[in-house]
Design a binder for these strands. Sequence first.
DNA 1: GTGGTCTAGACCACT
DNA 2: GTGGTCTAGACCACG
Lengths: 127, 127, 127, 127
Amino acid sequence: MIVIDNKSRKPIYEQIIDSVKTLIITGAYQRDDQLPPVRQLAMDLAINPNTIQKAYAELERQGIIYSMKGRGSYVGSSLTELQEMQKAHVFAKFDQAGRELKQLQVPEQELVQRVQHLYQLEQEEPQ
Amino acid sequence: MIVIDNKSRKPIYEQIIDSVKTLIITGAYQRDDQLPPVRQLAMDLAINPNTIQKAYAELERQGIIYSMKGRGSYVGSSLTELQEMQKAHVFAKFDQAGRELKQLQVPEQELVQRVQHLYQLEQEEPQ
Amino acid sequence: MIVIDNKSRKPIYEQIIDSVKTLIITGAYQRDDQLPPVRQLAMDLAINPNTIQKAYAELERQGIIYSMKGRGSYVGSSLTELQEMQKAHVFAKFDQAGRELKQLQVPEQELVQRVQHLYQLEQEEPQ
Amino acid sequence: MIVIDNKSRKPIYEQIIDSVKTLIITGAYQRDDQLPPVRQLAMDLAINPNTIQKAYAELERQGIIYSMKGRGSYVGSSLTELQEMQKAHVFAKFDQAGRELKQLQVPEQELVQRVQHLYQLEQEEPQ
DNA sequence: GTGGTCTAGACCACT
DNA sequence: GTGGTCTAGACCACG
């Protein structure tokens, strides 16, 4: 389910991009599944079709979906392909934060404990 | 020394904010030191004084500096205070990345190793 | 055999046009051979009959096939006629690319070598 | 000078992209030169600012220009960088046409002569 | 009905 | 005044 948060500072079209990526990663959208048509999704989210169009165009540029005039937009990336892309990206953020904390004199052990704590948490919001 | 990268995508006023924070953390600016006057810094960096003003205003809002009308702006936070603020912020980023990686099925052990690896690196360019 | 690639960005009707031309050039379709009826081809390719209709209409407009109401569509151009049409078209593309490369300061000799290289390659998949 | 042909089938935003690339290649736009502001160019060409915006966004995505909120858009690629990009692209078109002509039984010598003819032409439309 | 392009006009963040 | 985002609504090519 694609949802947007109107209060977020993140542009709507980026929220849609992230939402679609998440839906693929969670397996809700499978390769070659059709995405909601631009106009329909615009209706559902009560936003302008152009905004959806912009999000879909960017997703296509990233090779995650493919669109055909008059035929709809479809999932192009497999789950694993996308997961690899995402992992590389999040790892970069993780390392960056780690490096900054190291420079702030945070002891290694504190980060390790922090990681352990994250993994001890129960499945977060099963929702 | 406050420097800005004109080609960076980051807004100039944010670059100034980060620059001042870094100068405090590194000890270059001490509590109650005077910051460069708005006009002079605007001259030095060849940018609009309003931009400096905006950066100083945001720093004051965050309690990191204090200004006295007609007498300039001064460092308000001590090194340790600022470090705590920074740490809290970076920890949030660290945890966020960790949570996302957990959801991407990355094993806990891989994150721990990653942390250890970061800490084994030699002191990176003390600069 | 007319085939279409559903994932291609090229419109289906254009793919059909190209497919028919290729079949004539390769000799698979001879002058006055009957083309597959619109409805049957639509069934075989699992696409909309209107799409086939559009392709056949364009082929007729180009003088490559002719249709008789209620009696089907037939190959109108001979192999050599079509080859001449194709050649003229591809020559235009070739000259255009050549002119652009000249403007990009590519030396004449480099283009000549490139042509020679293309002709030295073994017959590529006779298919 | 950026111009557009309203009768062309090519989308306006693509015409602008090509136009900017050409201006860089010809040296009219140099690295770090400022491009015409979105609104001004929209006025000059009598088209919608959004269309310019779309063209600039794509040029930025391709690394050819860089834009900064409130500061304008600037040429990012050097002449030679862009020329290399263009050359690779046009060479691909050239080879493709050459290959098709080979398959159409055009003799190698005819292509070579064609290339030679292109290079014997005087500087076309000195304009 | 589908995506792609374009217009007209607005608001925001930044300088 | 600058680029970036968004809305409302239109037209086109395609199926």
